[in-house]
Design a protein around this nucleic acid. Structure first.
Lengths: 339, 339
DNA sequence: CTGAAAGCGCTTACAG
DNA sequence: CTGAAAGCGCTTACAG
């Protein structure tokens, strides 16, 4: 059962493969192919269920309609949620996605990028892994369509889809202040990642504006165990705290573990706000207020940006930056302080 | 900056592309190519950083070294965990994975399968979606390498990687009985999926063996809200229950929601065991005992099975069935009944 | 031991 | 309005 090829179609109709190709690619009108012939071709294509060989098309055109997607860990809910939606949109547009996880291994990330190149992907979507800045700059220099998301790297000029980190933590901080909290801590990681610095800045500026005292703890992240220890020491050293904001999902997780280890009760002992929302927060007692990243909106903006990029010629090089607003889900963990 | 091709190598060395091709594909010895020439070729390949064009190779050989992976929802932790490990193994072996989510939509699933075919994937890995039985049977009939996992479909002859469902729930039930529980409920979905029936059977047989009374509730799954309602009614109608086993992760989630809605306390009011383990269970108060599916082992067995399948000729058609054992994580939610 | 050539299945510049 | 032919970059049967 051999697949039908364009040759079979041409032969059966006694015409050239050129004409068949034009009809199939919707260029019949443009190429002045008669309506009668066009119809005959389309009918036979339908009858034989002819599907062009994508490999041949790709070899000829250099386009694969495949997009490479590179993140730290595809099994993280944030990334897999985005991956799912991106894949859906891509499928609708006739594209497919190759997903890969770098596991925070720069060497591996470079290899994976090379694999994408070897596979002739048409475009790249990445949460830029550390150490890949130069590689990606080179890639962009070759006019490869690249869309970066999640993290912004000042040094790398590219199209970005990010969230409004600073405004989000500013809003969260103001919310806690409104609800009567005065000694609010911000726990983050000791990182130069811009999005983490922005989150911190949103907190610090709001605290300053209200003339409150800032309590910032920068965790030196390695394992969960050491993080819990660091957090416990911080909480013990600052007994006057009445609220805490955790700067990212994994920090929140270890924060909750610290609560458990120290026998601290959410809200009753310390109000809690989490940057990043996830299912566990709904099951906490009481449920935890969170800044949610809108996965679908992020995914849709990534694809929109990339599709525009794919249409562009290298002449009009211009980088876009889409800022997607987060959603603030207020739950009981940040409830008003009782008078 | 054009890519170097096999022609460039041949031209620079004044030899035929045939020889270059043989050397590159490691068939120099077999083809009696002199060591001197082999070395010259390899040196130039290294110097020019020549990478064969995968598209041309694929067109010529019909092999793409791409594998299609089809599941309900790639953003579910179970699937994304497996996807991650599969992708890693595949990358090491020179394969790439195309992931897709069917979203429980049969029409879409058939389309996605067609896309895989159009892309000439070398093999398929699927948690068989409902309604795709016939399509997959046809696919297998064409000798396409197909590995199914997660769910077993009696009607579909194929290679399978599954877990020991029945033994797992039998063990969990025995554990509860050992710990002094007598009125143990099993909550599952009203489904003909074999793995769900096996889980139920493991419970029922163990209950019968100990001459206890079975309490089985089959949820007519639609939304979370209706499920919670059904569960609440079931709990209210069986006030004598002292333990419950939830038959799958999403059932556990709605079970925990029901606990919350009814103000029931885990273990104190009702002991709990979950089929499937996930992060939330660690954060429950007290933490919930769970049957964990070993994602890595499942992924590794899937890839092993598939790679063997890819080596096989259509002559030796034989289907394998790998049963991966689950891991029983005992936590406080099933603690011994106090005397 | 090595090479010329056909062919995988397309697209497209060119010719008429 | 339509077609013959080159070529994308490989692999491999065949010849010598």
């Amino acid at each position: 059962m051999k697949r039908v090829s364009i040759k079979d179609i041409a032969k059966q109709l006694n015409i050239s493969i050129t004409s068949v190709s034009f009809v199939i690619n919707g260029r019949a009108k443009e190429k002045n192919i008669s309506d009668a012939l066009t119809k005959k071709v389309l009918d036979l294509v339908a009858k034989l269920n002819y599907q062009p060989n994508t490999l041949a098309t790709s070899l000829r055109t250099g386009k694969t309609r495949i997009i490479g997607f590179l993140v730290d860990d595809i099994s993280e809910p944030f990334f897999s949620g985005i991956a799912k939606r991106i894949d859906e949109i891509a499928s609708e547009l006739g594209y497919k996605i190759l997903f890969s996880s770098t596991r925070n291994d720069t060497t591996k990330a470079i290899e994976l990028l090379q694999i994408f190149k070897d596979r002739h992907v048409d475009g790249y979507i990445m949460a830029l892994p550390e150490g890949l800045e130069d590689e990606v700059k080179k890639l962009i220099a070759t006019d490869a369509p690249v869309v970066l998301f999640d993290r912004y790297v000042q040094d790398v000029q590219a199209d970005y889809v990010i969230i409004n980190n600073k405004e989000s933590t500013a809003l969260a901080t103001a919310h806690l202040i409104d609800n009567g909290y005065k000694n609010i801590a911000f726990i983050t990681v000791d990182s130069v990642q811009l999005q983490m610095l922005d989150r911190l800045a949103g907190y610090e500026e709001t605290i300053a504006k209200h003339q409150l005292h800032p309590f910032v703890k920068k965790i030196n992240y390695s394992t969960s165990a050491t993080t819990i220890k660091e957090m416990a020491e911080f909480f013990n050293a600052n007994k006057n705290l009445d609220a805490v904001i955790f700067g990212a999902n994994y920090i929140t997780l270890d924060g909750l573990r610290t609560f458990r280890a120290m026998g601290m009760r959410i809200q009753k002992d310390l109000a809690v706000v989490s940057f990043d929302d996830f299912e566990i927060l709904e099951f906490c007692d009481p449920p935890v207020t969170a800044i949610a990243q809108p996965l679908e909106a992020i995914a849709e903006n990534i694809m929109k940006t990339l599709m525009e990029k794919l249409k562009q010629t290298s002449a009009d090089k211009k980088y876009s930056e889409v800022v997607v607003p987060t959603i603030f889900n207020i739950r009981e963990s940040s409830a008003k302080v009782k008078a």
